Computed example of a mutant assay.
Amino acid sequence: MDKIGIFYGTEKGMTAAMAQVMYRVLGDEIADEPVNVNRATVPGLLQYKALILGVPSYGVGELPGRTTGSDEGNWEEFLFRLDEADLSGKRVALFGLGNQQKYYDRFASSLIHLYQYVRAYGAEVIGDWSTEGYHFTRSHSVIDNRFVGLVLDHHNQPEMTKDRIITWLGQVKPGLLEKLAHA
């Protein structure tokens, strides 16, 4: 596929809304409409060489799904279907949501699970993000003092959301497009 695929899991619609913002910023010339993983197929995801994947924060820093109380299927169920898939040759940028005031001790920790899964399946992950400007005590999604992907706290810092998305997309877009050029 010659476009960037955007896939997300969502509970209350916020991750879907952020995926839509990213899609609009990138434009439909280089990105396809975002797809909820509860409606996605494995072949649908595997057709892309460059992906943006988004995860809500849910449970106690767990991967969202039915075992964490999700009403619909989410990343847990999708990744179970993806089991044994080969993501080598794919370049993936990740984003996650969180609430740093309410969950300061596990802020955006669901993101690390998605990161670990896609890396274990062979994907190259790009787009780590600074922890500056956030106020939390702990996040499992921090490696070497940086988030493993873009983290958005639209509940407590809505005024920063769009700028963070635009800045992050500016950082990951060249790497994602480079992958498309070599597809």
Rank of each mutant, 00 (worst) to 15 (best):
P158N: 11
T68M: 11
G149F: 03
S109T: 13
A19M: 12
G98K: 08
G65M: 13
V60S: 14
D71E: 15
A19W: 05
S141D: 00
D86Y: 06
V35K: 08
R138S: 09
D144P: 03
N156M: 11
D128E: 10
M160T: 15
T167K: 13
S141Y: 00
K179S: 13
N145I: 03
T131K: 11
S70D: 14
Y115R: 03
T41N: 00
S88E: 06
Y117C: 07
Y58T: 07
L45Y: 11
G127P: 00
A123Q: 00
Y103M: 13
Q157E: 11
D28F: 03
E84L: 11
H154G: 10
L180Q: 08
W75Q: 12
Q100L: 07
D71Y: 14
K179C: 09
K49I: 05
G149Q: 05
I112G: 00
A181E: 12
E124G: 02
D32W: 02
T10K: 01
A85K: 12
D71M: 15
Q100C: 07
I112M: 02
Q171S: 00
K179M: 11
D28A: 01
R66Q: 14
L177E: 10
G96S: 05
L53E: 03
M18N: 15
K162F: 09
K179W: 02
A17D: 11
V42Q: 06
H155F: 15
S130M: 04
E124L: 00
H135N: 15
G170H: 04
A50R: 03
H155N: 15
R81W: 08
A31I: 13
N38H: 06
F95A: 05
P64C: 13
W168Q: 07
A183V: 09
G89K: 07
L26V: 05
A108H: 07
L45C: 12
S109I: 14
Y104T: 14
R146L: 00
R138V: 10
F7N: 06
G149D: 05
S110R: 01
I30C: 12
L53Q: 03
L169D: 03
L46S: 10
F107R: 04
N38A: 03
P56S: 09
T15A: 11
H113L: 15
S88V: 11
L114H: 06
L45T: 10
I30Q: 12
S57W: 11
L150F: 01
T15Q: 03
Y103I: 10
L82A: 02
V142P: 06
A16F: 02
K3P: 09
Y117M: 09
L169I: 09
V172P: 07
V25G: 04
P56R: 08
I6L: 12
E29F: 04
S130N: 09
Y8G: 08
S139G: 10
E33P: 13
H154C: 08
V37G: 06
G27A: 09
E72M: 13
I112H: 01
G96F: 02
Y48M: 07
L111F: 00
G170Y: 01
T10G: 02
D83W: 08
A40Q: 13
M22D: 05
